[in-house]
Design a protein around this nucleic acid. Structure first.
Lengths: 358, 358
DNA sequence: ATCTTTGCCGTGTGCGTTAACGGGAATTAT
DNA sequence: ATAATTCCCGTTAACGCACACGGCAAAGAT
């Protein structure tokens, strides 16, 4: 392996060196047939010696092969959180469009496993070159994964990680650790005396709750391993399909003798609790939740929410697409597990996290 | 302005539409002369109607113009922080090399204004197409800026912002706000009683201290606007060119009757204070500082430093280069002021900030 | 009226690759 | 021995754009 030459060497340089035509060089580069073994090896040797790297511009200008990347994530209309990854995905799409990449986006209903299955099957039938999806339904996802493996279709897990798979990559956050971090923040924020802390897990019936449990586990594990705080942790599972249930549950604990000193909401619905706080003029209770929805931002700025745990979903979407670009086009190896940073957002630094810029 | 056509339209499509040759179209696209006004307008009209956008691949394949971007930042050997922006700058360089971009990196001595002046002049004489630099020396920078304006050379401020300039962009952090945020974290971490809090400003003689003061101001302003804490803030200017001075200063305050409850170090030298803590077995003092140097990471993981305020310098470097790419090559407008997020790093989330990945 | 200049414009080549096409030599079939 | 294959390999036309070159008309010069 030499250092790269002064003048960028191209396909015709190695053709000249090897005493063959550029057609032959092209054939060995794409290891097609119709080349004798001796000349093939000779050409390969020279390619190595000269350290040839293809000119990607000329490559995708001349090539007529198109790459299609399919994306399948939950419908943003039901949960605006999912708009964010889409932004990043679209931004990436704009950037690699020049290299003949096209992104096809599909969504499914988060509380309807069948919609996931149907959309996934549609996508697989369209024979894309890469597949990014959020495997929130475990069993159904396993079937999809199996098909992908059969088709040798590279797939990227988004947001949810399933172990022991041949996925090209995973982009998401370490949920357990994020709960653990939230607990640390909670511990900093409350005084050292005896406290009651509540974990709120808002969810819809028939929708997966995997994330919620992981975050809960992380939160609990922090306090269970002996901190300076003497806190009692309570867990509240709340069906948010009808709004009244949450209110009633909160009414109950606030009128009990185990009044909360802090509440950790394990997903982006923290604004519902904040709304309750505002309406009932509850102060002095530490409120920690997830994600930069505009509703949450509003309550963070008002001082009702103290901390938001975030994960730059736009960037995750962006990077997911680029992992497939790296794999398919640049033939570069990509990292299999990509945890995004666990961002801590407060009133004082929210300003610089608001807008997504790539 | 129509929507973009189904099949990507090119230069020859508009030539056909306008009943001219591609040569003529090319002339109006690069608004060269040798085109009559009537046909020029006609072609422009059709370009607009068809929503033509040039194929960037073919463009930079055919064009032989090279772009050179010059970078001038402090020498990383004296302060390893400056390795980070370089990483991002180099990553960006690799990506846009295909488009005939070359990055030339120069460094100067942070405590030697003359070295800055000399290097800057060298760069300006080499006539680059874009210039990224850290204007840490105010007066000298003004002169550089003036020359840039004369040469109509687009320049990007890095890390330090100078107002009322025609700079293309600025990438950095809001220093005042970061100090303000640090104060908020400090306030969360200490108890509500009467406390003594120290601001440590480590610096070398003859090196600029602008950042330090801004961060200090932000920190002080938080406590001065009536929080629940009754804290007394002390400021310590420390010359770190000889190591003993810091130790003596810390000895002094820890043996005084105004023992610190928290220390805010206004730059990345926080590890020096942490080292002192470790050696003297000081616990229960909240320590907040800046930047993800590996020394700081070590003490954060040990629990000696509680919070590090960070700004992803790699990303800043990366984006600085891309701002010039957008301006020079894509002719896209770029945002003039780009504050990076003020990241809060603790023991619990350091893991996911350690490695820079682009 | 002829020659030169100027203004405008079309043609052609090249950028580095891809991939279809075709052709010569060696091998096999008839 | 001739024809048909097969195996290799070279040639060439795109891909979309940049740019040098040359050419044709109208306007001006002699």
């Amino acid at each position: 392996m030499k250092k790269e030459a002064a003048a960028k060497i191209g396909i015709k340089d190695i053709a000249k060196q090897a005493n063959v035509s550029i057609g032959t060089v092209d054939r060995v580069l794409h290891n097609r047939s119709e080349v004798s073994n001796t000349t093939r090896e000779q050409v390969l040797k020279i390619i190595n010696e000269l350290g040839y790297t293809p000119n990607l511009l000329a490559k995708s200008l001349a090539s007529k092969i198109k790459y299609t990347i399919a994306v399948l994530i939950p419908d943003p209309t039901n949960n605006t959180y999912w708009e964010k990854p889409l932004e990043g995905i679209k931004a990436a799409a704009r950037e690699i469009k020049k290299f003949n990449f096209e992104i096809q986006i599909a969504t499914f209903d988060y509380s309807n496993e069948n919609s996931f299955i149907e959309k996934a099957n549609e996508i697989l039938e369209s024979n894309p070159n890469g597949f990014i999806f959020a495997p929130v339904f475990f069993e159904s996802s396993l079937k999809v994964i199996e098909k992908c493996d059969q088709m040798e279709l590279p797939y990227v897990f988004f947001d949810v990680f399933i172990e022991n798979c041949k996925n090209l990559a995973y982009f998401g956050q370490n949920s357990v650790q994020s709960g653990y971090l939230a607990a640390s923040l909670m511990s900093y924020s409350i005084d050292k005396g005896t406290n009651h802390i509540y974990i709120v897990k808002p969810h819809n019936p028939s929708a997966p709750v995997y994330h919620l449990s992981l975050r809960e586990n992380g939160f609990i594990s922090y306090f269970s391993q002996g901190t300076t705080n003497q806190a009692t942790i309570h867990t509240m599972d709340v069906d948010v399909s009808s709004p009244s249930i949450l209110v009633e549950s909160l009414d109950a604990i606030f009128s009990s003798d185990q009044k909360p000193r802090g509440i950790f909401v394990a997903n982006s619905r923290v604004h519902l609790v904040a709304q309750y706080f505002e309406k009932n003029k509850i102060g002095n209770v530490v409120l920690i939740g997830y994600d930069l929805l505009h509703e949450n931002i509003e309550y963070l700025e008002k001082g009702i929410i103290q901390f938001l745990i975030c994960q730059k979903p736009e960037e995750q979407g962006y990077k997911s697409v680029f992992s497939l670009y790296n794999h398919l086009f640049l033939k570069k190896p990509v990292d299999k597990v990509n945890y995004s940073p666990i961002d801590i957002i407060m009133k004082e630094n929210i300003e610089y996290y608001k807008n997504f810029k790539i």
